[in-house]
Nucleic acid binder design. Sequence first.
DNA 1: CGAGTAGGTTCGTTTGTTGAACTGACTCGC
DNA 2: GCGAGTCAGTTCAACAAACGAACCTACTCG
Lengths: 152, 152
Amino acid sequence: MRRTRFDDWPCPIARTTDLLGDWWTPLVLREAFSGRRRFDEFQRALGIPKAVLSARLDRLVDDGLMVTVEYQDNPVRHEYRLTPKGRAMWDVLAAMWRWGSDWAFDGEPPVILSDRETHQEVVPLVVDENSGAPLDPRRLRMRRNPRTDVSA
Amino acid sequence: MRRTRFDDWPCPIARTTDLLGDWWTPLVLREAFSGRRRFDEFQRALGIPKAVLSARLDRLVDDGLMVTVEYQDNPVRHEYRLTPKGRAMWDVLAAMWRWGSDWAFDGEPPVILSDRETHQEVVPLVVDENSGAPLDPRRLRMRRNPRTDVSA
DNA sequence: CGAGTAGGTTCGTTTGTTGAACTGACTCGC
DNA sequence: GCGAGTCAGTTCAACAAACGAACCTACTCG
């Protein structure tokens, strides 16, 4: 009777949900992207219960989004760093950023994302890599496998 | 001692997490995008416990991502439809799709997204709306407010 | 009249989350 | 060399959320 797992469902959204659906996980990743690496940095920045942070970091390491790197002996201490698999998750956070900015800040002052070097504002947008055009959800179909699946 | 809420944090990712972090919610939205509208359709397609589905749909309606539309009298029955705010969430699901496809289907047959009319494959990618370039998480800064905030 | 459909609610059990307290191995200042 | 502080956790009890089964209401169909 444990919580239903989605990590073996035949759908990329389901598998990503299984990971990001853990409470706090997207915020732990956000902090990692803003440069935090140590347990205490994450803990203080977020105010997350330590037991939960410990479980989340362990899972991110198990799933290959982060690795632990030893930065000190005596006592042994290690920090948590994003792997390429973890850094690839930035696009998902960016899309969440965009939606949140557009729809969840009604009237409040804007929070912006900018390029560290050019100082230009960055506005995330999801497009089709092939055509460069924004996506229209009403025109999309999800298919199991191009060869075997014929249904909707 | 209830679960920590993020919906009033001054960060768009946190606010979006507060919604999508509810277990099952991204999948309920996925089903809505694939055309499902009725309680039973969602329930059967996902195998979600009815009490949970009921809570999720109620929240999506409360938060303005869906609306109920009456489609029958005697007994009164209504269906759940996405609003523009709900449809805007497609970009987030698409980014999740991309990450899941790239990183969570090791060796398994690909699942694809295609245009209903042109039948061309669609590959979601997050870019900067202004420059059209993909995002580099290492070059980004998150700022509270362009006028008042000077820190990292 | 009984079975089926649609859209839920209720309930007891199991998992997950929370915050506080505790641990252990160090370092630093006095 | 002693107490305070740092860092990275673990343990615990209370509470919240998710689970699946059973139940409910209001119809329709045969």
